[in-house]
Amino acid sequence: EDPKKEILLAMLMVDKEKKGYVMASDLRSKLTSLGEKLTHKEVDDLFREADIEPNGKVKYDEFIHKITL
């Protein structure tokens, strides 16, 4: 499956209130437990690539855009 789609799906599952962003810690939890599970190192690399703080907010569109360039 398309990794971009899988990450967006994980974000939507976490963002039940439809705020347009999720906490990095919640996204990490989903990405390491769903679908093609990522390792913590892979998530760290994704966050670093997208300039996301480990305890920060992750906005869908910015995150998807940064990791798919």
Rank of each mutant, 00 (worst) to 15 (best):
E1W: 05
E1T: 06
E1A: 06
D2L: 08
D2P: 07
D2V: 09
D2G: 08
P3C: 12
P3D: 00
P3T: 14
P3E: 01
P3M: 14
P3Y: 13
K4W: 12
K4G: 11
K5P: 05
K5D: 04
K5W: 12
E6C: 00
E6F: 02
I7F: 11
I7C: 07
I7W: 10
L8T: 05
L8V: 04
L8Y: 06
L8R: 06
L8E: 09
L8F: 05
L9Q: 15
L9E: 15
L9F: 04
L9M: 14
L9G: 14
L9A: 14
A10V: 00
A10E: 14
A10G: 11
M11S: 13
M11D: 14
M11P: 08
L12Y: 07
L12E: 15
L12M: 13
L12T: 14
L12N: 14
L12V: 07
L12R: 15
M13F: 04
M13R: 14
M13D: 15
M13L: 09
V14P: 11
V14W: 07
V14E: 15
V14M: 14
D15V: 12
D15A: 14
K16Q: 09
K16M: 08
E17Y: 06
E17L: 04
E17S: 09
E17T: 07
K18T: 06
K18H: 08
K18D: 10
K18C: 03
K19D: 15
K19H: 09
K19V: 04
K19R: 11
K19F: 03
G20S: 09
G20K: 09
G20L: 00
Y21C: 06
Y21K: 07
Y21E: 14
V22D: 04
M23S: 15
M23Y: 11
M23L: 12
A24M: 05
A24C: 05
A24D: 00
S25R: 10
D26T: 08
D26K: 03
D26I: 00
L27P: 01
L27I: 07
L27H: 00
L27G: 01
L27E: 01
R28L: 01
R28K: 10
R28P: 00
R28T: 01
S29F: 03
S29L: 10
S29N: 13
S29W: 05
S29H: 13
T32F: 07
T32L: 13
S33H: 09
S33V: 04
S33F: 05
S33K: 10
S33L: 07
S33M: 06
L34F: 04
L34P: 07
L34I: 04
L34Q: 11
L34A: 11
L34D: 12
L34W: 13
L34H: 12
L34V: 11
G35F: 11
G35L: 08
G35V: 10
E36R: 13
K37M: 12
K37I: 13
K37Y: 14
K37G: 14
K37E: 10
K37R: 08
L38V: 06
T39P: 11
T39D: 08
T39F: 03
T39I: 02
T39S: 12
H40R: 08
H40W: 04
H40T: 09
H40Q: 15
H40I: 10
K41R: 10
K41P: 06
K41V: 12
K41S: 13
K41G: 08
K41F: 02
E42W: 06
E42T: 01
E42C: 06
E42G: 02
V43F: 00
V43R: 05
V43M: 07
V43P: 01
V43Q: 03
V43E: 02
D44S: 02
D44W: 00
D44F: 00
D44C: 06
D44E: 06
D45T: 06
D45Q: 11
D45R: 09
D45G: 05
L46V: 08
L46K: 07
F47T: 04
F47D: 00
F47Y: 09
F47H: 00
R48W: 03
R48G: 06
R48T: 08
E49F: 10
E49I: 07
E49P: 01
E49M: 10
E49V: 09
D51A: 11
D51S: 07
D51P: 02
I52S: 02
I52N: 01
I52W: 03
E53M: 09
E53S: 11
E53Y: 04
P54R: 04
P54Y: 07
P54L: 05
P54Q: 07
N55Y: 06
N55M: 06
N55F: 08
N55E: 10
N55K: 04
N55A: 07
N55Q: 08
G56K: 08
K57W: 14
K57N: 10
K57P: 09
K57C: 11
V58G: 01
V58D: 01
V58M: 00
K59P: 10
K59L: 10
K59H: 05
Y60S: 03
D61E: 14
D61Q: 08
D61N: 04
D61W: 01
D61L: 08
E62P: 01
E62F: 00
E62K: 04
E62W: 00
F63C: 04
I64G: 07
I64L: 13
I64K: 08
I64M: 09
H65E: 15
H65C: 02
H65T: 11
H65Q: 13
K66S: 10
K66F: 12
K66H: 12
K66N: 10
K66Q: 05
I67D: 12
I67L: 15
T68Y: 14
T68P: 14
T68G: 14
T68C: 13
T68H: 10
L69E: 10
L69F: 11
